[in-house]
Simulated assay, not measured.
Amino acid sequence: MIHPTAQIDPTAVIGDNVSIGAFTVVGADVHIGDGTVIGPHVVIQGPTRIGRENRISQFASLGGDPQDKKFAGEHTELVIGDRNQIREYVTINRGTGDGGGKTEIGNDNWILAYVHIAHDCKIGNNTVFSNYSALAGHVEIGDWVVMAGFSGAHQFCKIGAHAFIGMGCLLGSDVPPFVTMANEQRGRPRGINSEGLKRRGFDTARISAIKRAYRTLYMAGLTLADAREQLSVQANDSDDVRAMLEFLDRSERSLAR
């Protein structure tokens, strides 16, 4: 299942039932899990760990050196989980020595054509990166986040679970869980991702609690400190609001408001 024109480094570890297409290059210290399918003309550099049953399309470039001027060849890695779809011309770089040393991609993500994920990013599970979306270094993406086409995030931004980042939206601030961002004034909150939550089985009570928290944070005219105080009360009755509050506690950048 490995095409004769593929170049596989002798130190690479290839699992069972792995398919590797024509002219693909698998470098040193690359591990590829069982059942993964890799198309033609893919380049995978190590150290890189790829899990089970991933689908990697032609011309993707994974595990390349980080695009960071401070990088001096230190040992860093890329770790990719299971069942991810990685489409044409995707680029995902390894980490940096002073940024934790690791870029991490979770499970069941859809990473579509021309997406770029830079060094030291942490991606959760079940996310969607639409065509031409991009992350700078050290960005954290929660589970079920959707990045629409041509959207992007500045380095060190955090995007909470179930957030929706609209087409062309460029983020320079942290985005709490469940929030929808629109392409206005470098990214503006425009409500919660209610349609996405319904598709994932959130009931009316849960969505209502999230909407109330959004109004507290964005529409009540409160300072961030006062909004957090009210959210701490609402969190007593809602795990989802508690997740929003915990995100605010972890936020190190300004908050998108």
Rank of each mutant, 00 (worst) to 15 (best):
R215A: 14
G99E: 04
A113E: 08
A225V: 06
G196M: 00
E53C: 00
Q234V: 08
N193G: 03
G106I: 08
D120Y: 01
H41T: 05
V139D: 10
D249P: 00
D120V: 03
H154L: 07
V179Y: 04
F202C: 00
D65P: 13
A182H: 08
C121W: 09
A28P: 08
V79N: 05
Q45H: 14
G63C: 10
G100N: 07
Y114R: 15
S61L: 14
E104L: 14
D174H: 12
R52M: 09
L197T: 02
V128T: 14
Q155R: 08
I20M: 06
D174L: 07
R87P: 03
T180R: 06
F202S: 01
T204N: 02
H154A: 09
R190P: 00
V115M: 14
R215L: 11
I165Q: 02
M147V: 05
V175E: 04
I123L: 13
H119R: 04
V90F: 11
N183T: 03
A134P: 01
T76L: 03
W144H: 14
N17I: 06
W144E: 05
A118D: 05
L255T: 01
N107F: 06
F23Y: 15
V145Y: 15
I105R: 01
G63P: 10
G160L: 03
D82Y: 07
M167G: 15
F150H: 14
C121Y: 12
T216K: 03
I86T: 06
D174Y: 13
G201M: 02
C121D: 10
I56E: 13
N193S: 05
I86R: 04
E184M: 07
K69R: 15
A205D: 07
P40Y: 03
Q85W: 12
G39S: 14
I117S: 11
T103H: 05
I117L: 12
E184A: 12
R200F: 10
